[in-house]
Amino acid sequence: HNLTITQGKLFFHYNPKLCLSEIHKMEEVSGTKGRQERNDIALKTNGDQASCENELLKFSYIRTSFDKILLRWEPYWPPDFRDLLGFMLFYKEAPYQNVTEFDGQDACGSNSWTVVDIDPPLRSNDPKSQNHPGWLMRGLKPWTQYAIFVKTLVTFSDERRTYGAKSDIIYVQTDATNPSVPLDPISVSNSSSQIILKWKPPSDPNGNITHYLVFWERQAEDSELFELDYCLKGLKLPSRTWSPPFESEDSQKHNQSEYEDSAGECCSCPKTDSQILKELEESSFRKTFEDYLHNVVFVPRKTSSGTGAEDPRPSRKRRSLGDVGNVTVAVPTVAAFPNTSSTSVPTSPEEHRPFEKVVNKESLVISGLRHFTGYRIELQACNQDTPEERCSVAAYVSARTMPEAKADDIVGPVTHEIFENNVVHLMWQEPKEPNGLIVLYEVSYRRYGDEELHLCVSRKHFALERGCRLRGLSPGNYSVRIRATSLAGNGSWTEPTYFYVTDYLDVPSNIA
């Protein structure tokens, strides 16, 4: 807008934040220059609390790290170098490059900038070799853009010569660093050979998330399962459950009422301010606690030095998902009996873990797994792929695949051998790939016309006998059925096997 004052003059007093240069501009645009008398524009009460600059400061050096910015700028000295009290560095987070010096300023003089007072450097006698002032900004957020400017702080001049310097606002972004852990990993099994893994992005990506790394490792069953005799009275049979499938998407929606109208769909109840505040506090606490764990609990591995020492970490090797089922080394339970199943799973520490690289999504279907087997899954978020990966501390989750139908069934015939004193040795093959492992066998036998009897055969007993022995049988026709019990439950009964026990007292003698 054009402003013209045809008559009258300007009068400025007691404006401590208004620089004289701005008042002189007002004289020019209003056409009143030359009308004012000496005392109409006070030299001592206008701009006496402001830094009124008329020179431009330029930054000469900028260096960044993930949490620091090192700045240096060209030296500046007023005509009387004693008038320079120091520099004021202003900075704040700036997602967009549209910041002005006066953003967030209120009537009390406060604003949204963080201000650092910096002492002037030592003055050199040689004007050509003056030290460049600077400042190291610490405690910054990774991968965050900051708006920065600097200006001088000078003393009051009796001659009211307006001098000083100020830089333009520059924008500097800190470097990326390792992201925080992925949030809320959930693993479920939808079949006997697959596990579905879902997660949420890290709360602090500290860069642009480029991919996720998912490692999985087959877990050995508890050692007590191999040692305890679950045929003993009072000892509860062990059981394991597989990871249940995901709930429906509708039930997972946030901010939804727990109660549904019987007449149909209901609208979600909005969260109160107290609920939102509580969630923010919980989120802040979780982030602080995660940072504490990362800094205190997890110790970084030592990389190899120039002395030739090897990095103890196993090298990563990509495998196809079809090879995942046989990740671990199978060892027989008892070496003397080769027909026992290889369900003991000690994992070799030198073995390469299978892994998958996930790009542009937060889910993965891990296939080719062994049925009813526990897996430990390790999830890392990465925001750099080359020249070397920059990934987060791992988040861990466990899951067990679903049982395989008929995996616990005894394959092959049940054979028998009759000894003296009416002892019958029953023999059968253990299931080759049971659900988890076989903890015991149930032997059901009966003599024709009598009630059915049951015998429990422990895992250890089966390994020693290759089956079991029935003792003290009365003469007669017998039928026997056997079924295995694994961590997933009972298998199917075998087809009945028949044998006849004679009275050993009636056996004919070869003595003449």
Results as ranks from 00 to 15, higher is better:
Ser203Glu: 10
Ser203Gln: 09
Pro205Trp: 04
Pro205Thr: 03
Asn206Ser: 04
Gly207His: 01
Asn208Gly: 05
Thr210Gly: 10
Tyr212Phe: 13
Phe215Pro: 01
Trp216Ala: 06
Trp216Leu: 12
Arg218Trp: 15
Gln219Thr: 02
Gln219Leu: 07
Ala220Leu: 12
Glu221His: 10
Glu221Ala: 01
Glu221Asp: 08
Ser223Trp: 05
Ser223Met: 10
Glu224Tyr: 10
Leu225Ser: 08
Leu225Arg: 13
Phe226Leu: 11
Leu228Ile: 12
Tyr230Lys: 10
Cys231Ser: 01
Cys231Arg: 01
Cys231Met: 02
Cys231Ala: 01
Lys233Asn: 06
Lys233Ala: 10
Lys233Ile: 14
Gly234Val: 08
Lys236Leu: 13
Lys236Arg: 08
Leu237Thr: 06
Leu237Trp: 13
Leu237Glu: 12
Pro238Ala: 07
Pro238Lys: 11
Trp242Glu: 06
Trp242Pro: 12
Ser243Val: 11
Ser243Lys: 03
Pro245Leu: 11
Pro245Ser: 08
Pro245Ala: 07
Phe246Tyr: 08
Phe246Thr: 11
Glu249Trp: 06
Ser251Pro: 12
Ser251Ala: 05
Gln252Glu: 09
Gln256Ala: 15
Glu258Pro: 10
Ala263Ser: 12
Ala263Asp: 13
Cys266Phe: 08
Cys267Val: 13
Ser268Gln: 04
Cys269Met: 03
Lys271Val: 03
Thr272His: 07
Asp273Cys: 03
Ser274Lys: 06
Ser274Glu: 09
Ser274Pro: 15
Gln275His: 09
Gln275Glu: 14
Glu279Ile: 10
Leu280Ala: 15
Glu282Phe: 09
Glu282Gln: 14
Ser283Trp: 05
Arg286Gly: 03
Arg286Gln: 05
Lys287Cys: 06
Lys287Ile: 04
Lys287Val: 14
Lys287Asn: 04
Thr288Pro: 07
Thr288Gln: 15
Thr288Val: 11
Phe289Leu: 08
Glu290Pro: 07
His294Arg: 13
Val296Met: 13
Val296Thr: 08
Val296Arg: 10
Val296Tyr: 07
Val297Ile: 08
Val297Tyr: 09
Lys302Ile: 09
Lys302His: 13
Lys302Ser: 11
Thr303Ile: 02
Thr307Ser: 11
Asp311Phe: 10
Arg313Ser: 07
Arg313Lys: 15
Arg313Asn: 10
Pro314Ser: 14
Lys317Leu: 10
Lys317Ser: 10
Lys317His: 14
Arg319Ser: 11
Arg319Leu: 10
Leu321His: 07
Leu321Arg: 08
Val324Gln: 08
Asn326Lys: 15
Val327Lys: 02
Pro332Lys: 02
Val334His: 12
Ala335Trp: 11
Phe337Asp: 13
Asn339Phe: 05
Thr340Met: 14
Thr347Pro: 07
Ser348Leu: 09
Pro349Tyr: 14
Pro349Met: 06
Glu350Lys: 13
Glu350Ile: 08
His352Phe: 14
Arg353Gly: 14
Pro354Gly: 12
Glu356Thr: 06
Glu356Val: 13
Lys357Arg: 10
Lys357Pro: 07
Val359Asp: 01
Asn360Thr: 11
Asn360Pro: 09
Lys361Cys: 12
Glu362Phe: 12
Glu362Gly: 03
Ser363Trp: 10
Ser363Asp: 03
Ser363Phe: 05
Ser363His: 05
Ser367Lys: 11
Ser367Gly: 10
Phe372His: 10
Gly374Glu: 15
Gly374Cys: 14
Gly374Leu: 11
Ile377Tyr: 10
Ile377Val: 11
Ile377Gln: 02
Ala381Leu: 01
Asn383Ile: 14
Asn383Met: 15
Asp385Pro: 08
Thr386Ile: 11
Pro387Gln: 13
Glu389Asn: 12
Arg390Ala: 02
Cys391Thr: 10
Cys391Ser: 03
Cys391Phe: 02
Ala394Asn: 09
Ala395Gln: 02
Tyr396Ile: 04
Tyr396Asn: 02
Glu404His: 08
Ile410Thr: 05
Gly412Val: 06
Val414Arg: 02
Thr415Trp: 04
Thr415Tyr: 13
Thr415Val: 06
His416Ser: 09
His416Ile: 10
His416Asn: 13
Glu417Cys: 02
Ile418Met: 01
Glu420Gln: 14
Asn421Gln: 15
Asn422Val: 10
Val424Thr: 03
Met427Arg: 06
Pro431Arg: 01
Pro431Ile: 11
Lys432Tyr: 12
Lys432Thr: 06
Lys432Arg: 10
Lys432Gly: 03
Lys432Met: 08
Pro434Arg: 05
Asn435Thr: 00
Asn435Val: 00
Ile438Lys: 01
Leu440Arg: 03
Leu440Ala: 11
Val443Arg: 00
Val443Phe: 01
Tyr445Asp: 00
Tyr445His: 03
Arg447Ala: 14
Tyr448Leu: 12
Gly449Gln: 12
Glu452Cys: 12
Glu452Met: 05
Leu453Asp: 06
Cys456Lys: 02
Val457Gly: 01
Val457Leu: 13
Ser458Tyr: 14
Arg459Tyr: 09
Lys460Asp: 11
His461Val: 08
Phe462Met: 11
Ala463Tyr: 05
Glu465Lys: 05
Arg466Leu: 09
Arg466Trp: 10
Arg471Pro: 09
Arg471Ser: 12
Gly472Thr: 03
Ser474Leu: 12
Pro475Gly: 06
Pro475Ala: 12
Pro475Arg: 09
Gly476Tyr: 00
Asn477Val: 02
Ser479Tyr: 10
Val480Trp: 06
Arg483His: 09
Arg483Ser: 07
Ala484Met: 07
Thr485Ser: 07
Leu487Phe: 03
Gly489Asn: 11
Gly491Phe: 02
Gly491Ser: 07
Gly491Val: 00
Ser492Tyr: 06
Thr494Asn: 13
Pro496Arg: 11
Tyr498Leu: 03
Phe499Val: 10
Phe499Ile: 11
Phe499Asn: 00
Tyr500Leu: 09
Tyr500Thr: 11
Val501Arg: 02
Asp503Glu: 13
Asp503His: 04
Tyr504Trp: 15
Leu505Trp: 06
Asp506Asn: 15
Ser509Phe: 10
Ser509Tyr: 07
